[in-house]
């Protein structure tokens, strides 16, 4: 136990020190934390509850837009702000910017949680591939709808107010927003999976009919879990909005084939249904992606496709699952050795 605490404190220290130790990699590390957040949040339903959503990017995109609307809407009319032909220039004071940022991120999280509570009952009637495709449809439809809402800027997207901070400090701020979300989510998950609620969603994954028969109100558990996951993804989306400054609906906010799939790949790579799997998967995936995107330009998508095929064919349980199988003692699982068996 004490050994674990030392590990956690060391990791936290690294997290805090990283942007100061490697200042030119701050943006890279910030994106890494984004991947960790969305992967961990995806695993809450995908790994722990057995509901593989391909549409969690819906909460990311909605979080971006909700963050923008809250942050801008506090001070200006969003419709006027997005009007391409306006000649007036709207400016934000530092106080307005930070108030907007706090309200935007928290508001986006809550709004996405609320969305999940509303749409959850509609989708949790679906199982397996139907749930996956259904949620994917939700994300695609949302992107198309938002791209036709002129009030939100339609297909030309929406620009966020400009940060009053020097870019070097702003990058560190964005890093800590993502990292903070990641750390809070990790601690939350560690606690959450140890509760009766966590046991209940595991039961739903293992056998939903039996869970239902044991008196678990499955729909309620599923919807609440998805909503919690949506809060974090939505908040991460809002932070991304402040990071990117300008974004548009189809390629950036509701980017189903990029981040929408990447978050699933991260979890598959690391190991579904484990606490550390999504974190490790996100780190491996992000590094792999940056390396291929920088050094194998042109072949990056092929390399990525190959990686996905290899994971799905050879490492279905991900890295954590593989290690658990090969080195069970690392996970506190005692295995009688074969020699003993033979002797007995």
């Amino acid at each position: 136990m004490s050994k674990n605490w030392i590990l956690y404190i060391a990791l936290l220290a690294i997290t805090v020190a990283a942007p100061f130790l490697f200042p030119s990699y701050t943006a890279f590390l910030a994106t890494l934390w984004l991947f960790i957040v969305v992967a961990q949040a995806w695993d809450m339903t995908g790994g722990q509850m057995g509901y593989n959503s391909l549409g969690n990017i819906f909460f990311y995109g909605t979080g971006m837009y909700a963050g923008a609307v809250f942050a801008i809407g506090l001070y200006y009319n969003v419709g006027e702000w997005t009007d391409a032909s306006r000649s007036e220039i709207f400016s934000f004071t530092a106080g307005q910017y930070y108030t907007g940022m706090v309200v935007g991120i928290i508001g986006a999280g809550l709004f996405c949680g609320l969305c999940a509570l509303i749409i959850g009952p509609l989708f949790f009637g679906l199982r397996g591939p139907y749930f996956a495709i259904g949620t994917l449809g939700l994300a695609i439809a949302a992107g198309e709808i938002v791209s036709n809402i002129e009030w939100l800027g339609g297909g030309q997207g929406i620009s966020m107010p400009h940060s009053p901070l020097h870019p070097d400090f702003e990058k560190v701020l964005i890093y800590f927003l993502f990292a903070g979300l990641g750390v809070v989510l990790f601690i939350f998950c560690k606690w959450f999976y140890s509760t009766r609620f966590g046991a209940a969603i595991n039961a739903i994954r293992d056998d939903e009919e039996k869970a239902e028969a044991m008196g678990i109100h499955t729909l309620r558990y599923k919807t609440i879990t998805w909503a919690i996951s949506a809060v974090f993804v939505g908040a991460a989306g809002a932070v991304s909005a402040f990071q990117l400054i300008h974004f548009e609906p189809l390629e950036t906010a509701y980017q189903t084939i990029n981040l929408g799939i990447f978050m699933v790949v991260c979890v598959l790579l690391g190991g579904k249904g484990t606490l550390w799997g999504p974190v490790i998967g996100a780190i491996l995936f992000h590094v792999f992606k940056e390396v291929t995107w920088n050094y194998f330009l042109g072949g990056q998508w092929v390399a990525l496709g190959l990686l996905i095929v290899i994971i799905v064919v050879f490492f279905q349980d991900g890295l954590m699952g593989y290690l658990k199988h090969r080195r069970p003692e690392w996970f506190g699982i005692k295995v009688e050795s074969k020699d003993k068996e033979a002797a007995a």
Partner: peptide, 23 residues
Amino acid sequence: KAIAPVTEKYQIPMVEAEGASRS
């Protein structure tokens, strides 16, 4: 539109030839 906020942030002059939107 996606790149201008970045160059602006770092105060890097950008002369562009292919972005015509008034926005």
